Amino acid sequence: MISIKQVDFNGIDSLEYVNEPKPNVTNNSVLIKVSVLPVVPTDIKKESNPNATSEQFGKLPRTIGVAGVGKVVAVGINRDKNLIDKRVFFLNPAGAFSEYLLNQNKDWLFELPDSISDNEAATLTATSLVLKKEIEESTFSNVLITGANSVIGIYLLQQLSSVNKNIYPLVTPSSKTYLNDFLPDIQTYTVADIEEKFDSAIVADIAGNMSILKDLSQNITDLLIVSITIMKQTEFSNFKFVHESFDRITYEHLIKELSNNSLKALVGQVFKEHDVKSAQHFLEDNHSRGRILVKF
């Protein structure tokens, strides 16, 4: 089987397509034939920067990816036999980009209803809910979201619809139309549009652009920045880096919301034939227009 591995820190084009034996099913495992995988920005950062993560999965060589969708083709004697031939969404932070994947954690495997396509399921991320929790728990009534046109940003905006705060989704001028078309009931802003001064505000930072954060800070007296992209910085005193924890209940909730159409999926460009390098370059070189996927 083919696995996509990072072997050094020389960037996207150094990824290697490695032939490996198909995993053997153990008593407590489920074997998945992978069909579609999301391309995530964190992989691209890790591929060129050895300090991009403090996670235990930073050792090389490593299989890239954290999640995907596939079909169960075999189960161990201690796992549910009814899973055979079922479509599933899986989490696997230790690496997902392989033609076959062995799941040994029941909490990281989710059967998919017929109402959700493989591509829709592959867009799933719980990072937006981490930011939502920070926003809800803050005392600030003003919320600015950088990178609001991203996959995480648009999921977050949908999930904030019932939150009673002043929401300011920030995008580049070229992304306003895209976001307005996808979520027509939400007003969008560029940084230049934010002329009023705030006594206090929380910034949910998805873009990871220090220049944008500095510009915003000029108009905010009491500022809290919660970032999913910048781990360390010295510019702001009230700053917090947050990341997703892989929680079963959260993903069950997301799958239910997708299934009943209370959450809209964000499918972008889909690449075929394991073309991970082209997919990552596309993600790096273009404005976010939905989750970039790779078919296997």
Rank of each mutant, 00 (worst) to 15 (best):
E99F: 03
L91A: 01
E111S: 14
K106T: 14
L112S: 12
D13N: 14
L183E: 10
L266E: 10
Y100R: 03
I4K: 00
E20F: 14
Q6I: 00
K240D: 11
F241I: 08
D193F: 11
L131K: 03
I116L: 13
E20I: 13
G65A: 01
V34H: 07
V66K: 02
F9E: 00
H274D: 04
D181N: 15
K81R: 13
E55P: 00
L31E: 03
L91Q: 01
A74N: 08
D118I: 11
T26L: 10
T125Y: 10
Q233E: 06
L31I: 04
F296P: 00
V69H: 07
Q104K: 14
D247W: 01
Y189W: 12
S3L: 02
H243L: 11
I152P: 05
T125R: 04
I206W: 04
K214T: 13
S237V: 09
H281R: 10
T221S: 15
L60P: 00
V203R: 03
Y100P: 11
I292H: 01
D285C: 06
I116A: 11
V276K: 01
Q218V: 12
S3K: 10
D13T: 06
S262F: 09
R289P: 01
V18G: 07
H253P: 03
T26H: 09
P41G: 00
S161Q: 15
P23T: 08
G65S: 01
S117I: 06
T250G: 05
D43N: 02
I167F: 08
S237G: 11
R248E: 12
Y178A: 06
F140I: 06
K81P: 05
V130Y: 03
Y189K: 08
L129P: 09
A52H: 00
D114L: 14
T125M: 08
K5N: 09
N209R: 09
S288Q: 15
F296K: 05
E284G: 03
P184S: 14
M231A: 12
N166Q: 08
Q218S: 14
I154E: 14
S262K: 07
P23W: 02
L216R: 03
T221C: 14
L101I: 13
S162C: 15
I84S: 12
V18E: 11
D43A: 00
I167E: 03
V226T: 08
S262G: 04
V18D: 07
P21I: 03
L160Y: 05
V88H: 02
S259W: 07
H287V: 12
K46V: 00
N209S: 09
I225S: 02
L157Y: 02
S262V: 12
I228Q: 06
G95E: 01
S141F: 12
K214W: 12
F271P: 06
N92V: 12
I152R: 08
I44L: 01
H274R: 10
D43W: 00
Y17K: 05
T53G: 01
P93D: 03
L109F: 10
N19D: 15
I186H: 12
S259K: 11
